[in-house]
Amino acid sequence: MITSRAPGKLFIAGEYAVVEPGHLAVLTAVDRFAEATVSKSKDADTQLHSDLDGGVRLSCRRVDDRMIPATADGAVPASFAYAFAAVSVLDRLLVERGIPARAYRLDISSGLGDADGRKFGLGASAAVTVATVAALGRFYGLGLSAMDRYRLAMLATVSINPKASGGDIAASTWGGWISYRSPDRALVSEVLAHNGVDAALSAPWPGLAVHPLPAPTELTMQVGWTGEPASTPALVAGLGNSSRQLSDRTAFLSHSNACVERLTAALEAGNSNGISDEIRCARDLLIDLDTTAGLGIMTPLLEALCEAGEAVGAAAKPSGAGGGDCGIALLDRTRAAALHELTDRWVTAGIRPLPLRTHPSEGECR
């Protein structure tokens, strides 16, 4: 039996910009996890089990060098979309390398949501994908590096969501605080389609860069959950393509990259004031984008979350695509009274504080 787990994530800055290839974001991994356990099976078919959506099961088998679900209509249940995509990519790699398939049972669980099944917005799909890739890689003795695991998880993800930035996958793979630059997913998908998985693992991925960052030492990061689940793909799809909107987006991308670069420099220098300034800058950029594109990023509860943060001297913003999910506030860790006041203000506004910490970094990125 082999078990791998992957942490969830929070976006610190760079949301929406990082969706475009070659653009920047800063993220941190958090200590909530998705877990994948692989064990040998006596069944002829591979069995996938999940505790998501109340517990579901999916059988699948390799047919003509391709993994297919053993369902009446050939469809993959939504609960297994990302796990099955990861299974399929790993199986294709095995075929390319001439490694015999072995029947197994894959059990998936996630601690990235509430008890009632609502997700916190911590990148559960990415964490499930990364954990599945890691567990199957160990099961088959593939000796996958962190970059291999990231790339395989990314190949699985873009088969479902071609616009996914992959920032959540990077955070779930490496852990800690990271600077992330998104790759050209269309080009990567072409390499996969024409040359296969193994070639995609070794080919250049234009735009991609992942670098570890030091966590703030003088600031504590507090996380508030609005209780309103949001759909990142739906929000990103709302970005328009009119000439005016494209012009606005170009300006947004430029300003966002500059903000993230300053934030990265402030983190590396341990400059708490600089970090706070750029968190506020990132929030203002999201507000401006929301105003021009009408995406619904700033919900009333996210506005309340940010206002409560500013009222106690914290730098606060939505984390991720907005429209619900989580927000963050960075505050001087020595100001205990202000921290308690922030918590009280959030609770009064209907925002639930989440006791999250940074999940330690695995090591060097490439």
Rank of each mutant, 00 (worst) to 15 (best):
G123V: 11
G117V: 09
G137R: 08
V128F: 08
L152S: 11
A124H: 02
R151T: 08
L136T: 08
L144F: 13
A126S: 15
V128Y: 03
K119Y: 01
F120S: 06
M147W: 01
S145D: 04
R138I: 03
S125N: 08
A131H: 03
A127W: 10
V128N: 01
L142C: 12
T129S: 15
G137N: 07
T132F: 11
Y150N: 02
A146F: 00
S145W: 05
Y140N: 02
Y140R: 01
Y140T: 02
G137I: 12
R118D: 07
R138C: 02
S125L: 10
V130D: 04
A127M: 10
D116G: 03
D148I: 05
F120D: 07
D148W: 04
G121E: 09
G117N: 11
R118F: 01
L152V: 08
R118L: 12
T132V: 15
G143D: 14
G143S: 08
G123F: 09
L122M: 11
A134M: 05
A127D: 11
A134H: 11
A134G: 09
K119V: 05
L142M: 15
R149L: 04
T132D: 07
L142S: 10
A134D: 14
R138Y: 00
F120E: 09
F139S: 01
Y150T: 06
F139E: 04
G121A: 06
A134I: 02
R151W: 07
V133A: 09
G141V: 13
Y150C: 06
R118V: 00
G117W: 02
G137L: 11
D148R: 04
S145V: 01
G141K: 00
T132M: 09
Y150V: 03
L142W: 01
R151K: 15
L136M: 14
A146Q: 13
F139Y: 15
L136Q: 14
S145I: 03
T132W: 12
R149V: 12
Y140Q: 00
